[in-house]
Nucleic acid binder design. Structure first.
Length: 563
DNA sequence: CATCTAATGTAGCGAACTGG
DNA sequence: CCAGTTCGCTACATTAGATG
């Protein structure tokens, strides 16, 4: 039914209290509205058959004396029912008025009201979410409605009918609500499907975002009680944050749910993006915000292990980084990749694949006959074996690309021989391997011996250079400076190099899960920016001053021998 | 394959408002 | 004060996935 054809009976009751079972109706007021116009009015005092409490008289002005001579409910209600007809019962908090009407009808032994009901409080909550109060007084003030006899039944009913008309027109304009059915449904819709851009989002957009510094960093969105909802990192905080708070309507359900709860945004600036990535990772794992799905826990990624503590080293993979004299490379993505690397090394390099017992017993195994081993068990030729190890090292650090070349040839041959299945398999392996080795190439050292300053010049940040200091494979600190660096920046660079690259410093005993995760994040970032990066390597023979000079040289863009 | 952890879904309770 | 509604939070159960 069209809203214009419907009859609304806007009703207000004055009662002696708030409990329908114990308290009674003492006045009924109602206005009949059709097509936006008041067509009829109803007003009647009712004898509640009990005295009117003082606080109620104070609020409504209705005294026990006034209702003493009025007819009781069982005489008034039939008249009201006739007035109501099959119109829609409208009230401000209709469950209140409805339950009093039903309670009186029950006392009379009459049927309760079958009419549809419409609640203007429910509409107000959905249509005016930003308003501080949805009480009738506040709405009257908001719409500038003159109420003749506030807290008298007819006065409040008149005011409510004006509010109703405002709501109906707002619903037509903003929510395409044209029919009575849609109108009645709307009052039961959940807030979030109704609300547009909530007020608190607007205030964050307008008041918080202008103060965000143009730097990399980590931001935290918090709810009303300060609990973190989401932690994120940004290359540039203002850009990232703005993207969260604009086009809110088009975002997915999960994000809308979060934005509904956000009341404040906090941030920590960092010198560089990489530092922000690492800080973000730590904070997500420590605080586990509800809306962060990724990076909630530390994973034990596999590392490739070259057991150089052994006289005749072997290659294997492990999820633990120990201080056992072995060289560790990686990490790689998963078990499958780790096994693939170990397998490729086994097939292309003549390392032994026997266990120590067999080695010492000098038991030649089938790998010797396959020419996959230098057979140290028989020859005891440590020197020949060491050259193989050196070649494996060159392969694992991404320096020796010949294996990739060989694999490429084999793939071509398989393809030429119409063995496409094998060719495809080789292609997949090759692609993964290239990625893994490319990550190693920049570090060019096993994890523990990765000591370097990474100089990053982002193309979209002219005049600015980031320097990352890596010691024992772990990110230590980063410095952002101008290109070329000012004298002060050079001094501070030297100072940082001194503290990070202390020759006396002992390598860490073990690497924690956190270290392993951060090594992965570091290698990932390095890989992603490999074309914009130069690495200045540090060895125990490099003095901090030389290192700082070499870094400064790269910052100015003059290629220099690595230190 | 058994076990444990993390992610996701659900129920229930408290807080905040509305009416006289 | 009471009753009703809704949201946010907590606790708990269920499910999916990782681990050894």
């Amino acid at each position: 039914m069209d809203i214009a054809d419907a009859t609304f009976v806007v009703t207000d009751l004055e009662t002696t209290g708030t409990t329908p079972d114990d308290d009674r109706i003492m006045e009924i007021g109602a206005v009949k509205v059709r097509d936006g116009a008041v067509v009829d009015r109803f007003q009647q005092l009712v004898n509640p058959q009990q005295s009117v409490p003082g606080r109620i008289t104070k609020m409504t002005g209705i005294t026990t004396g006034m209702v003493f001579e009025a007819p009781p409910a069982d005489e008034v209600l039939p008249d009201y029912r006739a007035f109501l007809g099959d119109g829609i019962l409208v009230a401000h908090n209709v469950s209140f008025d409805g339950s009093f009407l039903d309670a009186e009808l029950q006392r009379m032994g009459d049927e309760t009201l079958p009419n549809e009901t419409l609640c203007t409080v429910r509409l107000a909550r959905r249509l005016l979410p930003g308003l501080d109060s949805k009480g009738l007084s506040r709405l009257a003030q908001f719409y500038d409605i003159d109420v003749e006899g506030r807290h008298r039944a007819l006065g409040d009913a008149e005011a409510t009918s004006v509010v109703l008309r405002r709501f109906v027109s707002q619903l037509a304009f903003e929510h395409e609500v044209e029919t009575v059915e849609a109108l009645l449904r709307f009052q039961h819709q959940s807030y979030q499907t109704v609300r547009e851009v909530p007020g608190h989002i607007e205030s964050i957009r307008d008041e918080v975002l202008p103060d965000v510094p143009d730097e990399p960093g980590v931001y935290v969105m918090k709810n009303r009680s300060g609990t973190p909802l989401y932690i994120g990192k940004a290359k540039r905080l203002p850009d990232r944050l703005r993207s969260h708070f604009t086009a809110v309507e088009s975002s997915g359900a999960r994000k809308r749910k979060m934005l509904q709860k956000v009341r404040s945004v906090d941030w920590t600036t960092t010198a560089t993006e990489l530092e922000a990535i690492l800080l973000e990772s730590r904070r997500i794992k420590a605080e586990k915000p509800r809306y962060n799905r990724a990076q909630r826990r530390y994973y034990n990624r596999p590392f490739i292990r070259l057991d150089t503590a052994h006289e005749y080293p072997t290659v294997s993979w492990t999820r633990r980084l120990e201080a056992d004299g072995a060289e560790y490379y990686g990490p790689v993505r998963n078990t499958e990749q780790a096994e693939m690397v170990v397998d490729v090394v086994g097939r292309f390099f003549q390392l032994r694949e026997c266990d120590d017992e067999r080695l010492h017993l000098g038991q030649r195994c089938l790998y010797a006959d396959m020419d996959r081993c230098t057979v140290p068990c028989e020859t005891k030729d440590a020197e020949a074996y060491a050259t193989v190890v050196e070649r494996v090292r060159a392969f694992l650090t991404g320096q020796d690309q010949s294996v990739l070349g060989t694999m490429w040839d084999r793939m071509q041959r398989a393809s030429d021989n119409l063995n496409f299945e094998k060719a495809a398999e080789l292609r997949d392996t090759l692609e993964q391997l290239e990625r893994i080795l490319e990550k190693q190439r920049v570090a060019a050292a096993p994890v523990r011996q990765h000591n370097a300053a990474l100089v990053h010049q982002a193309p979209d940040r002219a005049g600015r250079v980031d320097v990352m200091l890596v010691r024992f494979g772990r990110f230590e600190e980063s410095i952002a400076c101008a290109a070329p660096p000012s004298p002060e920046e050079r001094d501070s660079l030297l100072e940082r190099c001194r503290s990070v690259f202390d020759v006396e410093a002992d390598p860490p005993e073990t690497f924690s899960k956190r270290d392993a995760t951060e090594i992965r994040l570091l290698s990932h970032w390095v890989y992603a920016h490999r074309d914009e990066l130069t690495a200045v390597r540090w060895t125990p023979r490099t003095s901090p001053a030389d290192l700082a000079d070499a870094i400064a040289g790269r910052v100015q863009g003059q290629p220099q021998q690595s230190a």
